[in-house]
């Protein structure tokens, strides 16, 4: 296995890990977003609660969740280690004239953006995931997951914080998405433009949708009335 340790210790190996975990996390964002959108269903939380129920009880989901935590930690830790390594590679003396015209702001500030996102994740998890997992729900049997979330999103600072965090996420994705494909050696030739465009669309749509949810909940607007999913029953209109 020396080839594997050689590979994973190399600069490119390190970056491949960051890019693979990054793409996995991007995929997770989509799944997470699909779930969250149920907050906007005007059904008093039934859809969200059943989704939430599945998420917290299904064994497969639990295993995937472990992978997710590992990916977050690996992505963050590797990212920070690479950042530190890169600072050192630049040397002790900085340029007197700094210029930003040769590259995008996001690409130069991935560690900063990533740190913001990490702080957000920590607070986000403390706010919901920790409560759901560690006793809060048992102490408040009258509350559903939906109630906890909606109560949270009624606080102005939380909503502002979430929106800001999504802006950071958007910029992080704007560079990160195509960068991941570049690191995997895919972003070349005819694929270059395609990957660039998908990346831009992805990094606008996903964070925007995430940001819209708390805002709408805050404003008591639930636009998605059309369909809801009740386990074991065919799709039907809930009106």
């Amino acid at each position: 296995m020396s080839w594997f340790s050689n590979f994973s210790n190399s600069s490119i190996g390190n970056k491949v890990l960051v890019s693979l975990t990054g793409l996995f996390l991007s995929l997770f964002l989509v799944v997470h977003l699909a779930g969250n959108l149920q907050l906007l269903v005007d059904d008093g939380g039934a859809a969200f609660n059943s989704y939430s129920e599945v998420m917290s009880s299904n064994l497969l989901i639990k295993i995937v969740a472990l992978g997710l935590y590992a990916a977050i930690i690996a992505h963050a830790v590797k990212g920070i280690l690479i950042y530190v390594k890169n600072r050192r590679a630049r040397g002790n003396i900085k340029y007197a004239v700094k210029t930003g015209s040769n590259s995008s702001w996001a690409s130069r500030n991935m560690a900063f953006l990533g740190s913001l996102i990490f702080i957000f994740i920590a607070i986000h998890m403390a706010q919901f995931w920790f409560k759901f997992k560690f006793g809060y729900m048992e102490n408040h049997p009258d509350l559903t997951h939906y109630d906890v979330v909606v109560t949270g999103f009624k606080q102005t600072w939380i909503v502002v914080f979430y929106v800001l965090a999504q802006i950071a996420l958007g910029y992080h994705l704007l560079h990160g998405f195509q960068s991941a494909f570049q690191t995997l050696g895919v972003r070349k030739g005819k694929y270059t433009k395609l990957i660039q465009n998908i990346g831009v669309v992805f990094s606008i749509i996903v964070p925007l949708a995430f940001a819209v949810i708390p805002v709408l909940v805050y404003m008591d607007v639930y636009p998605l009335g059309a369909f809801t999913v009740i386990p074991g029953q065919p799709l039907e209109a809930s009106h």
């Binding site: 690479i82 050192r88 590679a89 590259s103």
Partner: peptide, 21 residues
Amino acid sequence: VKQMDEEGFGFCSNIGACEAE
């Protein structure tokens, strides 16, 4: 790549300033 790493260059994060300059 092995030699590049040993020389103490940083890791590429696809910033693209290299191409621009």
